[in-house]
Amino acid sequence: MGAELYAGRMTAAAEGDVTVFLIGMRINRFRALGSWLPVFKAMPRMLRELSRDKGSGMLGYQLLFGPPRVIYVVQYWSSHEKLLAYSVAQDKEHRPAWAAFNRRMREGKGRVGFWHETYVVPAGAHESVYLNMPEFGLGKAAGVVPVGRRGDRAADRLSLKGA
């Protein structure tokens, strides 16, 4: 049947700061396989590497399909410092993939688009609710707890105590 459904209202068990990293591609010319397929295939290698390395700082991720021809990954990190460290690590999958991607982008003449966004979210500035859902998003990355443990209303969960 698939992933376990959590009955009722749940919220992410994440405590403290969270860094949310969105990264994606847009296939501008579908028939230009040589431009976008290697980019598409590189991401799973990096995600496997990060998932195996519990010290990497990546808490979890969600692969999503957006508007036509857009594929993206929402990643949850324990800190932006760990995200940035991974991006420049010489001994990890990202560096060679990034170099190859840049070569393809120069040669590709707009056949594939690329984007990323990074959000550093302080403790108390994020909240979530999942109703009759399997683990998803931040809840999948950090686990879930019943809403009542964090406050019944979004305003309660968005405490911003450190602000």
Rank of each mutant, 00 (worst) to 15 (best):
Y76V: 04
W77V: 00
F114H: 14
F30S: 03
A89K: 15
V88P: 03
H80R: 15
E4I: 12
M1Q: 04
R26A: 00
L84M: 13
G148I: 03
W77D: 01
F30T: 06
Y86G: 02
A155S: 15
S79Q: 09
H116G: 01
N132Q: 07
A89N: 14
D156M: 05
G151I: 04
A142L: 08
K41A: 04
G124A: 13
E15N: 02
V73Q: 00
E127M: 03
S35L: 01
E93L: 10
E107H: 11
R104N: 12
G24R: 07
H94K: 09
Q90T: 13
G2I: 07
V145I: 15
L37E: 01
Q62Y: 08
T19H: 10
R52P: 12
S35H: 06
M105Q: 12
G110V: 15
F101K: 09
A85T: 03
D17L: 11
V121E: 13
H116D: 10
H126Y: 06
E81A: 12
Q75P: 00
G162F: 09
F136A: 09
Y61Q: 08
R104V: 15
L50M: 08
G162S: 14
V18F: 10
V70Y: 02
K161Y: 14
P146N: 07
R149P: 00
A85K: 07
K161S: 13
M58F: 04
W36H: 04
W115A: 09
Q62G: 15
G139A: 04
P134V: 11
G162T: 12
G60W: 01
R26W: 00
M43G: 05
D91E: 11
E93R: 15
A14H: 10
A97R: 05
P68L: 03
D152P: 11
E135A: 09
R149G: 05
G60L: 08
M10C: 06
E49N: 03
R153C: 03
L138F: 07
R106M: 05
R69C: 01
S35W: 01
F30V: 11
S159V: 02
S87F: 02
T19G: 02
F40A: 06
R48M: 07
G143W: 10
G16E: 10
K54A: 15
H94A: 08
T11S: 09
V145H: 12
R157M: 13
P134W: 09
S79I: 05
L131M: 03
A125S: 14
G137H: 02
A155R: 06
P38Q: 09
G34T: 14
S128T: 15
R157T: 10
G151K: 01
Q62L: 14
V74Q: 04
W77G: 00
K92H: 14
M25D: 02
L64C: 04
D91F: 06
Y72H: 07
R149W: 07
G113P: 06
F65M: 02
G16C: 09
E4V: 12
M105T: 15
R31H: 05
V39F: 10
N132G: 06
P44Y: 00
A7C: 01
Q62M: 14
L33M: 07
N132M: 04
V120N: 14
A3H: 11
P38N: 05
L64T: 01
G60T: 10
G143E: 04
K82L: 11
S79H: 05
N28E: 01
G113M: 14
I27E: 00
V39A: 10
V74L: 08
E15V: 01
